[in-house]
């Protein structure tokens, strides 16, 4: 490689680091900053949850967080711990809150067992049909991004799908729920570890 080539690679690497380290967020001046106090006890002020069962909101596409809040508030997605807060966020302004978290940098994934990640990668083919190979999802089809979500949270959602306890009876989710019934319980943790490890 030429010196120039090395420099370009180096600059590209630096740009990548800056892209991760410097979010397009105005922090406390963001109109959603104080409104997000309703979420921060569990999700962190910047949405960078560090608990295995609490989803990361940082970098979550605004359309998806908005949908989640609306579904929690209406009871369509039943969750005793989320419903009251979702109603609060709707009152405060869900767009501001969703945009605020979307602008925060995604944290590095929590540590995972590499063997579980590898088993999950192999087993993830059926998921990839909708969510993509690495789990990035497809906003155009309303398919959420799974990457970097804590493994415990992903596993819990799979169990809720399987038992039809997440958005019960929702026709657009019948395929994913049918798929979950074909996956052995032991494999849930591997799948969760794989998508949790992706960025």
């Amino acid at each position: 490689m030429t010196n120039r080539g090395r420099t370009l690679v180096g600059l590209a690497g630096l740009a990548l680091i800056l892209a991760i380290a410097a979010p397009a967020s105005t922090g406390p001046k963001d109109p959603g900053y104080a409104k997000a106090f309703s979420c921060s006890a569990c999700h962190g002020w910047d949405g960078a949850s560090r608990a295995d069962t609490v989803p990361v909101l940082a970098g979550m596409p605004a359309w998806y967080l908005k949908k989640a809040i609306q579904d929690y508030a209406s009871g369509k997605r039943p969750a005793a711990e989320m419903e009251p807060y979702a109603k609060m966020v709707l009152e405060l302004g869900v767009d501001d809150v969703a945009n605020y978290f979307a602008r925060q940098p995604k944290p590095a994934p929590l540590a995972a067992d590499p063997a579980a990640v590898e088993r999950g990668r192999v087993a993830a083919a059926p998921c990839a049909v909708c969510h993509g190979t690495t789990g990035k999802g497809d906003p155009a089809k309303g398919v959420p991004d799974l990457t970097g979500q804590p493994a415990g949270y992903l596993r819990n959602q799979m169990l809720l799908f399987k038992a039809d306890k997440r958005s019960p009876g929702e026709p657009t989710l019948s395929a994913v729920k049918a798929l979950m019934k074909t996956i052995p319980d032991a494999q849930y943790a591997d799948l969760a570890a794989y998508f949790a490890s992706q960025r």
């Binding site: 921060s40 006890a41 569990c42 999700h43 962190g44 002020w45 949850s49 560090r50 608990a51 295995d52 069962t53 609490v54 415990g152």
Partner: peptide
């Protein structure tokens, strides 16, 4: 409950 505790301690 554990997730809440870990999160809020961090907050």
């Amino acid at each position: 409950a554990l997730g809440w505790a870990r999160s809020i301690w961090n907050d």
